[in-house]
Design a protein around this nucleic acid. Sequence first.
DNA 1: TCTTAGCACTCTAGCCTCAAGAGTGCTAAC
DNA 2: GTTAGCACTCTTGAGGCTAGAGTGCTAAGA
Lengths: 376, 376
Amino acid sequence: MSGPLTERRQTILKLVIQEFVDTATPVASETLVRKYRLPVSSATVRNDMAALEELGFLTHPHTSGGRIPTDAGYRFFVENLMERTSLSPAEQRMIRHQFYQVRGELDQWIQLACAVLARTAHNASVATAPRAEQLRFKSLDLIAIHETMALAVIVFHGGIIKQQTLPIEPGRTADDLRRAAGLVSDFLADATLRRAEELAAVAMLNGVPLSDFERSLVDLVVRAMVAFEEQVQEQIYLDGLLEMLSQPEFLPASGREDAERAIKRMHRMLEILKSGRGLGPLIPQALASGGVQVIIGGEHGEDVMRDYSVILARYGVEGAIAGVLGVLGPTRMAYPRSISTVRYIASLMSNLLAELYHVNARPSDVDVDDEDAQRE
Amino acid sequence: MSGPLTERRQTILKLVIQEFVDTATPVASETLVRKYRLPVSSATVRNDMAALEELGFLTHPHTSGGRIPTDAGYRFFVENLMERTSLSPAEQRMIRHQFYQVRGELDQWIQLACAVLARTAHNASVATAPRAEQLRFKSLDLIAIHETMALAVIVFHGGIIKQQTLPIEPGRTADDLRRAAGLVSDFLADATLRRAEELAAVAMLNGVPLSDFERSLVDLVVRAMVAFEEQVQEQIYLDGLLEMLSQPEFLPASGREDAERAIKRMHRMLEILKSGRGLGPLIPQALASGGVQVIIGGEHGEDVMRDYSVILARYGVEGAIAGVLGVLGPTRMAYPRSISTVRYIASLMSNLLAELYHVNARPSDVDVDDEDAQRE
DNA sequence: TCTTAGCACTCTAGCCTCAAGAGTGCTAAC
DNA sequence: GTTAGCACTCTTGAGGCTAGAGTGCTAAGA
């Protein structure tokens, strides 16, 4: 009964989506004709809409009142209908500028990435700190903090740093610590996790001339590496909560019922974000595959995510370090714009990481003040 | 006209507050009589309530419908009526237990403190990382991360650490870095900010045998110290957003109007939290004065905070390091319980800090795994 | 076969009214 | 100073009604 997906029907689907994303209200046949000056009558559009509905791309919330896209509709749009735009050069410049202003630490870049994403996509944004794909020990340093406490700084190849305080016996001098750290550094030099574990096992069997303290340091490093590898997600940065919650989906359009639903939705969203359910399972997936991933509504397994879409991209340096960043919001989302923003910011972050860790250092002065001066 | 604040009236005020905090609905004279078996009639209670209203302790939202406390009412309650309870030993034990489970870094303790506060007070909780009252330089270490990048770890007396990556010329060896760091450490040994600035000025005038690189390190340290001192607030930890937003104040009680107001309130709250307005000005104040501070509704200067109360306490080690933690929620808040929880957790954090930085290290093993294993 | 005008039908949103219920304030008696 | 009684006020929710928006269908036209 449904008939073929003609050119015109595709156009209509596209326009419905565009219009619905814009206005957040079901779109009527007549509206399309008027607004986009279609060369057909509203009745024709209605017929096509009915066909699109049978094809599974549109629905009807109520008998009267216009159509809205289904998940499949959005999917088809993203896959076939959407023109793949880039951000305008002006926007790119503006964003880049902001990144160059923040001469801080990685941490702050990630936060900035989230802030920019949120503002651009008018939705929530998420990011994970990048983590090494294959951890390789480089060196251990011990810094006395005071008589009974030291800071262990474990450096891995590729510029990853992990630190940890540890208690020490009051007697130890700075030289003691340095020597111990040096021995351990040499002992574990360039070890991957597997190799480090082997070496630690050897050390435990008294097979090497290490003191108890030094052995405990070896152990510390191994544990740090294990923890690092096991950590599925370092830490999730989040921003734009208010932006997302200002979307009409979270605001009451009419009667009391609607308002209550909006509030419920909001609570559920906060729970989703807090629990990490919803995002959690997507992150490894995004890490594994390159490009921009778009998960629309029910495509996400979790039922709580039925009404939301996630756009994720991997960023980082191929074969060395990688993280994920993206946008989260109602399925009614400006996909073209969001996708290109995510893509752009991911590439920007990748460049920054490459620059920071491999190619060459940032040219101008790095200073502490900037961190705070720029923070607002 | 109002008459004296008799014993019975005080009791009634107390009961009204208790009841209102419990039920979140205006309390009627009859309810009090019935629920608390008052030995007087509802008419008498009504008279007293009218008197309390003239005294400014109660209001009436509508002609019909019960009374609710004013800010002044809560204030009087907190000041005079509330019995100053402590948390039960069982609760204390439970909380302490959680803290001993997290053998992580300071960071995680603060997060835990927030989580516990939020769950106990059913409201949002905030905390700042503790900061040194008088910064005193101890040592600088440089750790090569890779060819062009090093990590500077600046240690201050009292166990405070600040770190910063900096670009370096590719030629430098680890020994180079160590020597430079050592020189700078000696040069600035034990300097306060003022002293460090003097020394830096001297160094700039070529008055001391330091290389350009070493001078830049001196500069780095001074800037770090300045940034540290200028930072009004290190970083604000927040938790319990969902707990607070589940309070009836943020849920629609009746009609559509109400629901819309609830949502507006929620948005405003998110803005308050994001902007730091509302909390910002209170923190220095709480840092300055010991004890538990209670700011009720309009007592806070900012109009946006009119409907909210904040309970803050300082924590830390006298004369060395201090931070702030507390609870934020609608003025209708369980003050006794919240106050005692805040007090208890502040003292707990103080003890932990003292233990960590001064008295002696925690007795048992500190290890990396715990951080993550315990995280959930 | 595709398109279109016309029209009946459906559903929503907003508004009004109405009745029930909750609570007060006041008055007069104790 | 306390209390019973009662009129009055205000909120809340339900129900009914209307206007308007939009569709689906049918029949005519290209």
